[in-house]
Design a protein around this nucleic acid. Structure first.
Length: 281
DNA sequence: CACGTCACCTGCGTGC
DNA sequence: TGCACGCAGGTGACGT
């Protein structure tokens, strides 16, 4: 489910309140329960419970598609992968285990009757409780929305590789936060074919691509993310898709039929007219 | 190094 | 209706 805009939407809700929940920062963790052990990347459940209990949430942040919750001593990192979601419930004393939902994998109880639920039907999501978040985030590339990433730097990074554009943009060590939807959308906006070789882009094309990435991400955040199936709630960006899930429909720019191909096992949507494959091969 | 394939999981839509 | 199949917002471990 979640790419950068969906994660950012959840971060804001947990940090500031919203989506029916109260803000987490400043609240102490009273206890936790692990219903699916493999959700914990580290440490093991017993260690996790012992260490997290008593710590206070200091803030809620995002890095790429990771949620970071700095605690009193450690950091709690969460990656939602394909189907993960976070929900804050308010529970009455004595009813701490009531109104659970199918697929709740981890529960964390906090002060003031708050219960943070990690819900994940497909069980791909992961959590880490670590002393230093850098050990988990070490291989992440730059934040696309950070102003410190310039078009020149982005161009250098592109041409330093010789890879197909779409798989490269999905590589989190190249750029942090892009997923299947926003990559297809950004490539269409930039009028670049998903299979183009990254080293063939000139500086102008790199700048157009970076701006397209930023525009689709910002619009996604503004629309509270995309809700395209039964998992995610609240977002509206799905109503603005240019090519994603529009196979066989007319391109909104030129009227050509939107095509779907497989790139690295991922469904890939593009307009053959707006995004011609001029690149070699 | 770049790319293909599979594994990890559950649930939904489609077509027979 | 039942059932097989393909598909899904992600990533990591392999092999070539």
């Amino acid at each position: 489910m979640p790419e950068l805009p969906e994660v950012e939407t959840i971060v804001r809700a947990l940090r500031d309140g919203g989506r029916g929940g109260e803000p987490l920062p400043g609240r102490q963790i009273l206890g936790a329960r692990i219903s699916w052990e493999r959700t914990l990347a580290e440490p093991k459940a017993a260690q996790f419970l012992a260490r997290i209990t008593g710590q206070t949430v200091r803030s809620v942040e995002r890095r790429g598609k990771f949620l970071l919750l700095p605690l009193t001593n450690d950091s709690l990192l969460i990656h939602l992968r394909m189907s993960g979601d976070l929900r804050v419930d308010i529970v009455q004393e004595g009813a701490e285990e009531e109104n659970l939902k199918p697929h709740d994998r981890v529960l964390i109880w906090l002060q003031d009757g708050l219960r943070l639920a990690f819900n994940d039907p497909r069980k791909f999501g992961r959590m880490w409780l670590v002393a230093d978040s850098a050990e988990v985030l070490a291989n992440l590339g730059p934040e696309p929305l950070s102003e410190s990433l310039t078009a020149e730097t982005f161009h250098q990074r592109l041409v330093s590789k010789k890879r197909q554009l779409k798989p490269l943009l999905l590589d989190q060590s190249f750029l942090a936060g892009m997923g299947n939807i926003y990559t297809d959308e950004a490539l269409h906006m930039a009028r670049l074919h998903p299979l183009m070789s990254s080293d063939t882009l000139n500086v102008e094309q790199a700048e157009v691509l970076l701006n397209a990435i930023r525009n689709v991400l910002k619009e996604g955040i503004r629309r509270n993310g995309a809700s395209i199936d039964w998992v995610y709630r609240g977002g509206e960006f799905q109503n603005d898709f240019r090519v994603y899930q529009r196979t066989g429909e007319a391109c909104q720019v030129c009227g050509q039929i939107v095509q779907r191909i497989l790139v690295g096992q991922r469904g890939t949507h593009f307009c053959p007219t707006c995004q011609p494959f001029e690149g070699q091969r």
